[in-house]
């Protein structure tokens, strides 16, 4: 079947299966981070090819920030910006960073990230939940980057987070989803969208996240540090779409023994 013959089916899926966070509707279930991008040309190609509608950015001292042209590229692509609190180690730092980001970007959406140390970049659960509560109370739409702990995921959802974003494995590790069972449990335990964030290495990891029931995938390094970022962006887009369709279609149960797909009835005696 050609791409054009597939188009009506894909359009129907987009229309009937929207991705909604905090009453905002997206057709793409792939969120892209800009970290590690080698050039603005590559960034633009990857963003456009990925079909993403939500792109994360960070805030740093002006001397260390990228040129203003990165924002021009993202504006030109028509994507929504999602500021993060990357690098924050305490709730106090994360809350202040989110408030600064709200001033800079004019959005109350924030990817909340509070890490425990720079070696693992793993979330600090105690500081994270504290920051989430403070930011929700301050009117933020909080998308919380968290561990794959289903109980913590539920606590974040109960605190009013608009989305819970468990890691598959440490940021930038490319180790994929180390505990698929936890991701599935976390998905079952909350009513808000679940976005697999961090650890994706290649397309099959993104597809698995969607098959496990995640509503979307957020990745950066897997695309920006790939040998061919634009091609990997397309791979991720198709993996996310494929994984989502497989989830909705309902996979067959796993069996210990074979089950013939061709009937034995009428088998000739040869």
């Amino acid at each position: 079947m050609s791409t054009s013959e597939l188009a009506p089916a894909l359009a129907r899926e987009e229309a009937t299966d929207p991705f909604v966070i905090a009453r905002e509707t997206f057709t793409s279930r792939l969120l892209l981070g800009t970290g590690g991008v080698p050039s603005l040309e590559t960034l633009e190609a990857a963003v456009r090819t990925s079909g993403t509608q939500l792109v994360t950015v960070a805030l740093r001292r002006v001397e260390a920030s990228t040129s203003a042209s990165m924002l021009k590229v993202l504006d030109r692509c028509g994507v929504r910006l999602l500021p993060n609190t990357a690098g924050c180690r305490t709730a106090r730092e994360a809350v202040l960073t989110a408030r600064l980001a709200r001033e800079a970007f004019g959005t109350s959406w924030v990817k909340l990230e509070v890490i425990g140390d720079e070696h693992t970049l793993l979330p600090d659960a105690v500081e994270l939940l504290d920051a989430a509560e403070q930011l929700v109370a301050d009117g933020f739409t909080v998308l919380a980057y968290t561990t794959d702990d289903p109980i913590l995921g539920r606590r974040l959802a109960d605190a009013g987070c608009a989305a819970v974003m468990p890691l598959g494995s440490p940021i930038g590790s490319g180790l994929g989803i180390r505990n698929p069972h936890n991701i599935a449990l976390l998905r079952e335990g909350v009513d808000v969208p679940v976005v697999l964030d961090a650890g994706i290495g290649t397309a099959s990891d993104a597809a698995l996240a969607m098959e496990l029931g995640c509503d979307a995938v957020l990745l950066a390094s897997a695309v920006t540090r790939a040998r061919d970022p634009e091609r990997m962006a397309l791979a991720m887009r198709q993996a996310v779409e494929g994984g989502r369709l497989a989830r909705l279609a309902g996979r067959i149960p796993r069996r210990w023994h074979a089950e013939a797909s061709t009937s034995f009835e009428g088998l000739p005696a040869l």
Partner: peptide
């Protein structure tokens, strides 16, 4: 004072 601006980030 801290004067901050956007940069690339995950």
């Amino acid at each position: 004072l801290e004067v901050l601006a956007p940069t690339a980030g995950g």
